[in-house]
Nucleic acid binder design. Structure first.
Lengths: 217, 217
DNA sequence: AAGTAAATCAAACGTTTGTTTGAATTTAGT
DNA sequence: ACTAAATTCAAACAAACGTTTGATTTACTT
């Protein structure tokens, strides 16, 4: 599916508004006003509001698939370096595409998915993410660097869950750390660093073999 | 604020539907139909749809405050026992009140909070949660059982984030673990156990003092 | 039993919703 | 310059929205 610049602009505006107010909370008149186009252009280009959000998911899904392939190229690094690179990569991606991942989070909360297309795309994305993480970890296990008993699914859940939670509670983070007066960019950078430190430590503690063997070294 | 049984029933139905379809995605006619009441009863009892969701947050916030007080009563246990009890307590709470926490998750994703009342209640809840966790961990640190350098905010973020992520991706969990045919209750119990094991291990690894000191014991 | 307040109802209110229409305008190919 | 297709627009559409109305029923007090 190819989209022209005008369509991509509409998708970008829709992404921002859906993230801010939810799908049902955003009217096509909101979108058309922000995008400075006529209301009918949305039906004209996409067919319906539902098809618009499907187009949004399709575009982003393609982007992520490409990104993930790049991530799996670093086979020459050590397992821990690979893990750290993956962690920073995912943090960066979720921060950079915050609006889209807000929408993803909302859709996941839906008991009945909005459309089969969206749930299929999300499932594929998650499967690919998990497989990528499994590759890295199983590799580290074969090399004898990581513990053999690691719950990769739970670890992946912890990684994405922690980042999403941190990003969705930004206002709370501001209050707790007395950062009411800093810019949004500064706050984001602060969260990024702190997440990176915490998650790398967390993965290290979880993956690395215990050293408290009977003293014999 | 006191609510009669009829009001509480409306709140319960609204909670379920808001969780399933979102606030804007749920009409008061949906609610009135499910609750088997007349549409006008919602305005009659609560004033408006917005006041209804405020009432929902108020009721649940009061419940959680009471629950938290109970949680802080176990001062006679060891720090690790306290932490494990806290983890299971929070898992149980988030599973038991899944609908409400779905709504909370959605509200947190909102860039502009729906009402000042809701954001104030959420802030209070989160502050209390964090303070409770700080109490337990600082206590363990004073006793020399926990590491001195623990990022409690990030740890709390990881805890809630992981549980929320696991619960919001239940359909994915089903597929990955080949559990298409099990009941929802069985699935939930499986997730609960796996979360409990994983998070306790995670907290243990994060909190416990490193034992790989220069061999001298 | 009468009276009063609370609760319930069908119906209607004025908006807003997503979508369609059909004419007007722009763009692109020859 | 002409034509045809693609784009843009204001206007209108029916349906759904949250809310209000005013009559009716129920529950309780005296």
């Amino acid at each position: 599916m190819e989209y022209n610049p005008k369509q991509l602009q509409i998708i970008a505006v829709a992404e921002r508004l859906f993230a801010a107010k939810g799908f049902s909370g955003t009217s096509i008149r909101d979108i058309s006003q922000e995008a400075d186009i006529n209301v009918s252009m949305i039906s004209y280009y996409f067919g319906s509001k539902e098809k618009l959000i499907e187009a949004l998911f399709t575009v982003r899904a393609v982007e992520f698939r490409k990104r993930l392939e790049d991530l799996l190229m670093n086979v020459d690094l050590s397992p821990f370096q690979q893990v750290n690179l993956m962690i920073d990569g995912i943090i960066d991606r979720l921060i950079e595409k915050q609006c889209f991942h807000n929408i993803v989070a909302r859709e996941q909360l839906m008991t009945d998915s909005r459309t089969p297309i969206i749930s299929a795309l999300l499932r594929d994305l998650k499967v690919n993410n998990l497989r990528a993480m499994e590759n890295i970890i199983h590799n580290g296990q074969k090399l004898g660097v990581f513990r053999p008993d690691v719950d990769v699914l739970m670890l992946s859940t912890a990684l994405f869950g922690t980042i999403n939670q941190a990003l969705s509670t930004k206002p709370f983070y501001r209050i707790i750390n007395d950062m009411q007066d800093v810019t949004e960019d500064y706050l984001e950078e602060d969260i990024r660093k702190r997440l990176s430190i915490h998650l790398k430590k967390l993965f290290r503690d979880t993956l690395q073999k215990e050293l408290n063997l009977p003293a014999d070294s």
